[in-house]
Design a protein around this nucleic acid. Sequence first.
DNA 1: CGTCCACAGGAATGACGGGCGG
DNA 2: CCGCCCGTCATTCCTGTGGACG
Length: 414
Amino acid sequence: MVDTSILDKVFEKFVSNTRVFCDREVLRHDYLPDRLPHREEQVRQLGEILAPTLKSSRGSNVFIYGKTGTGKTAVTKYVLNHLETKAKEFHAPLRFCYVNCRMVGSEYRVFATLCQSIGLLVPFTGLSAGEVFDRFKAGVDALGVIFIVVLDEADALIKGRGDSLLYELTRINEALTKSKISMIGISNDLRLKEFLDPRVLSSLSEEEIVFRPYDASELRNILSERAPSAFCSGALSDAALSLCSALAAAEHGDARRALDLLRVAGEVAERAGATTVVEDHVREAEKHIEHNRVFEALSNLTLHSKLVVLSIYHLSKGDTHRAITGEIFEIYNELCYEMGVAPLTQRRLSSLVNELDSMGLLNAKVVSMGRYGRSKKIGLEIARTIIKEVFAGDTRLGHLVGYEPKYLTRNENR
DNA sequence: CGTCCACAGGAATGACGGGCGG
DNA sequence: CCGCCCGTCATTCCTGTGGACG
């Protein structure tokens, strides 16, 4: 027999307690507001570039640069949505497809997504990327439309596997007779140009739009624009709103971050039973977000990546000692033995360390120790308590948290 | 000032799981 | 069902290198 009274209380409290939020969806970063403050110029630019598509001519290709949370995606979606409604009004044959390259993952899957958007079903795997591309090409051409391809976070793809995808796409119009394609590339990395083939660069960057980070007062405006529809009147203190803006501005001028902070702060306040969101709730939210991010990232790692993290955890015990690759490999091997799994090679481990570094879980830096060789110095970027928390809850790895590596006892010197 | 450590990280290759068209 | 072609992960082999030591 389960005691449901506890749950009842939780639900009742949730339903009756509508004092803080009235619509928290407004604060999600994928929510598209009616107005995009401080991005009027970019909206106008992109609109001008794409306007010709309404008259069935191809718009220029555009490259959009800017750091995360500067409104690139929002502006693009905003303009495309309006373009779509206009197109319907004028009966212009306009279609578009938005692809987030980082989420989608591989070149193959980008083409697969494009195919799906025009109603072509392709298998998850099995075909060559070229085959999928050809099907897409034939598919769009048959439609006889102006097609806009949006490649968001294109840098994630290009850095990983080169620019052959972009190259093929920029040349696609030569093979099309009834349709035309224009592209919008979006990149978080301003140095992306350096990775690109000059031919791709010139055709892709017919136009460029740069998004500067928001400053604190701009972030404040963005938040205060959304706050009235997100929160009940009087439920949000001015100080809390300012703190969210300031924290996000200090980071990267990241509006996404500001919105997250505000939303989570509201949730923290709500759970605490408060009627007003105050600064302390924001600070709490900051910790909460970081904790969640790390927890999620750690939990989703593969077994071997987890073992690598654990090895570094053991090595950095006590002080802020930074491990080097060789040491990590020693302890990693011990842990693998304890687990009864075959260890990976040092070469592979080195790649895993780099992946963990770019996820922000580790901090890896190549250093030369002169006579004593060249290696990577690696330290944990995250709180040890979270590592304990994640691995202690793992049935397979729990016992390794308290494991005493023989390597460490063998080398009592530091 | 040359040597030589302890790796970094690129390239080629292979095992594996999966879908294709015939 | 088969032979073929993928993408992904991992191994093997490799060349390159910053700087303390002698």
